[in-house]
Nucleic acid binder design. Structure first.
Lengths: 174, 174
DNA sequence: CCATAATTTCTGTTTTTACTGAAATAACAA
DNA sequence: TTGTTATTTCAGTAAAAACAGAAATTATGG
């Protein structure tokens, strides 16, 4: 596939942004390509289009599948797997949210709860406010976690509606 | 400073989480240490506590200062800089939000707008839905950007209040 | 079964990022 | 000034991550 310059620009930028958020550059590029693609793509076509090694594409696709962002589909008369992602940005957001919550927020919550428990048990002279600071951080992560949970539960349509409600929501807090 | 085990656990975990979000591990650790510290710390004390090289601490502190997360303070009778961060998690959140918006969201918006303009100009046969997909993504980033903007403008107290309103907000969207 | 196609795993290489220690610079007190 | 302390810059090193190509495995059609 010969990629339009516009698509290239998007994919490259997406790779760059992914890298800044802890996502492997090629993984993000593969996902961006699938997002733009009108149809599921076989691994070889990804190889050609992005000019990265076959093995690398294989690993990247696996990774995207563990995130629940990409799935393999079969077509009649073709032994190869074809890969696709949702084209609904809100659905993608939801999936990423859920997965980052599971991988990062939840473990952090666990650690923080342990820390708070320990801090309560033994007041330190070195860090008298340890307990307070950890509790404040715990509350923050708990609230973030709860938002993530709720957002991940919403249907994509509703998530979009909520996002568009922005202004009126923020007025509640002024 | 001899760090309580609990503080160590928190700092190490925080470094790890930072790394997953594109923040250098030691930079995140330095910030975590300052967050727990009852008073501003001189660079040397950070060196001892985290056992990383002086130069590394220097670079890390610079980085945190460019983020607006850390500031240097002077004390009478001590030539050394002492470094401190806000102890208000909501304030920290606000600062990070603003900075990531500036560094990542805004440039992405610019690229996406270019892409959408280009896609409209030249419909591609390869990717007929390029335009639609880019527009959907643009809308998503625009809404995210707007939320970030508004959240970054709120006073920390109000941000916390809003966060606690979670449930009722999400009911709006069901 | 065999041959072939598709995919994955593995190993070594390349690239990038992080880090250290030394040297240079700056800030300051005597 | 000059000596001392603090900080930054720089160059080389080390560690980590990403990647490619080959080999191995798996799946499938004949």
């Amino acid at each position: 596939m010969i990629l339009p310059a516009t698509a290239q620009k998007f994919i490259v930028h997406w790779g760059e942004m992914g890298a800044r958020w802890g996502i492997n550059r090629s993984v993000a590029q593969i996902h961006a390509l699938l997002y733009l693609s009108p149809k599921p793509l076989p691994a070889d076509e990804i190889v050609e289009t992005l000019t990265i090694a076959r093995s690398n594409v294989s690993v990247g696709l696996k990774e995207l599948q563990t995130w629940g962002l990409v799935r393999a589909t079969q077509t009649l008369g073709d032994r190869r797997d074809h890969f696709e992602t949702s084209t609904d940005v809100w659905e993608l957001f939801r999936v990423i949210l859920r997965e980052r919550k599971r991988r990062e927020l939840d473990p952090t919550l666990a650690v923080l709860r342990e820390c708070v428990a320990e801090a309560k048990a033994s007041e330190s002279i070195q860090l008298p406010e340890l307990d307070d600071r950890l509790e404040a951080m715990l509350e923050f992560i708990e609230l973030t976690d709860a938002w993530g949970e709720r957002a991940a539960k919403l249907a994509p349509k509703n998530l979009r509606r909520l996002a568009k409600l922005g202004d009126s929501i923020f007025k509640l807090a002024e």
